[in-house]
Nucleic acid binder design. Sequence first.
DNA 1: AGTGGTGATAACCTTTGCCTATCAGTCAGT
DNA 2: ACTGACTGATAGGCAAAGGTTATCACCACT
Lengths: 318, 318
Amino acid sequence: MHSIHMLSNAKSPSLNQIRYFVTVAKHLNFRHAAQVLGISQPTLTTQINAMEASLGLTLFERSRSGTLLSAHGHALLLSAEKVLTANLHFSETARNLSDGDNTMYRLGIPPTLGPYLLPHVLPDIHALKPGLKFYVREAAPTQLQQGLLAGDYDLILTPMSDTNSQIQSQPLFYEPLKFVTASDHPLSGQAYIDPELIRGEQVLTLEDRHHFHHQVQEICLQLGARVARDYEGTSLDTLRQMVVMGMGVAFMPGLYIHSELHKPEALHVCELADMPIVRQHVLAWRNTSPSRTFFRELSAMMRNIIEERLKGAVTVTE
Amino acid sequence: MHSIHMLSNAKSPSLNQIRYFVTVAKHLNFRHAAQVLGISQPTLTTQINAMEASLGLTLFERSRSGTLLSAHGHALLLSAEKVLTANLHFSETARNLSDGDNTMYRLGIPPTLGPYLLPHVLPDIHALKPGLKFYVREAAPTQLQQGLLAGDYDLILTPMSDTNSQIQSQPLFYEPLKFVTASDHPLSGQAYIDPELIRGEQVLTLEDRHHFHHQVQEICLQLGARVARDYEGTSLDTLRQMVVMGMGVAFMPGLYIHSELHKPEALHVCELADMPIVRQHVLAWRNTSPSRTFFRELSAMMRNIIEERLKGAVTVTE
DNA sequence: AGTGGTGATAACCTTTGCCTATCAGTCAGT
DNA sequence: ACTGACTGATAGGCAAAGGTTATCACCACT
């Protein structure tokens, strides 16, 4: 007889032990199971014994003439198999990730850009790399940079900003800012307009948490135009609406205009003569990101797609 | 730069490594996570490194100023947690089994006994041991014994049979076999009947794969009665029906009669004077069964219940 | 009585998992 | 600009886990 055994502070069985248990349960023969598992029969025996000891149960009824699954073994078999399939699923997911580019990246992009750029770009990316997924979230550029550092995004597509040593970025393209008036506005009608004429105009813009606001503000300072502080749009669409209703003029991103071409309506679009205004967009990521090489590759891919799809609207970086 | 690393024949990460991964992902701080896990920080670092190497991906972005979950890490976190919960569930089930008597046992019982005994016994057992479950399967005694050895049952409740060295059994009770005739039969009417009177009677019985058949056959041989070979019942109910219809007389198990008392109908039941006929039922299990001590306890419990519930119908073994 | 099959045991070796001690950057507050 | 407190990485050592081969004890069937 054994001495009364300790109710051991059982550490749960290892994955291997569970795998062994299931295999023996399936074959009801230690030698066969061992062979299938690629280990020796004594190892299998000791491992099963260890497992039984740690659980405080008998899983198998052994006799010199064979092995049977005990009632306890029966009861545990199902959960054991579930552990194995869960583990298998995990490994499979991992293999999937390491094999190709099957990851989902969290992409941050400002609301003044996302809706007008991504519809032209994402379908082609999806076609090229079917496994690649983006979880797109909109935020103002400042939040984007902050969120990138905090790990909320893996990748951001944003107007160029102060360089940060922890962030690597790759320029993608220049987007022109177009000058926009209502079609019944005195300045309406020409494709190019003398910057001097804008002096004194009421220029509408977005709320100041948008990067866009500051850029417009700076231009206005240069041109001597007034930025309307009391009416600020919350989105490009509201801004456009305000211009149409004659509340002032505005600068609007070329891609927004481009996407509006289908419904020109009561809006006149032109550029400043001899004074192209642009904003540059970059793709950026943490320099610690394990996918950084892939992100460079992705930048190139995006530039190609933009070159192809939006040739007239923007200028791709060399 | 590292040398180009082997695409290692990755063995999947251990349960511990997965646990480590999840904890680090939750705390985003190796030291805290290590403390929570009860291991040292260097160990944690090494294990996470090993895991990343074996998976061929980077799970975390480390910097001297902190840790972030990489996109790959994000993608794997959910599956990792699933593995852990599956494992937890397994351990919980195991603990449940070892704690109490929460197992489901596969109980084999002959069809000539099960329906007439178990309804009197199982409810009380359930009340005493709520965690205990029986998966009841009916089969003829020979199959029962065979199935017990083959591991199809954990436990059988069966008429006594030849002792087998691999089977342990515990007597439960004696069940009388009653003599039964149609109520309009010449032998009907008395509570005790002289065995001599049966000589020459046509005795009906079940198909010969039932143990019951052989016992009746032997009695008839002793008494000089004829066993009707051409009409054999497939169940006790058919047998009873045949008796009622005057096709012959029969011996029927006391518990069956007992359960029929509510609807006596056209059947006369009596016993042989000075010649009680009984069959003994035992509870039996493999002597290798890890639950054998519990099975002894169970036998006692069953005897008590039967004593209590079926005092008039059967005689419990001392 | 012999033979081929079962699981258990013994003795040994290699790898793994963990430890302590220490290093090397980063960042915030003097 | 320096200091101190935080981050994760590394080195060296030890014990236990997990594996091996060789052998045993038993059972069933010829």
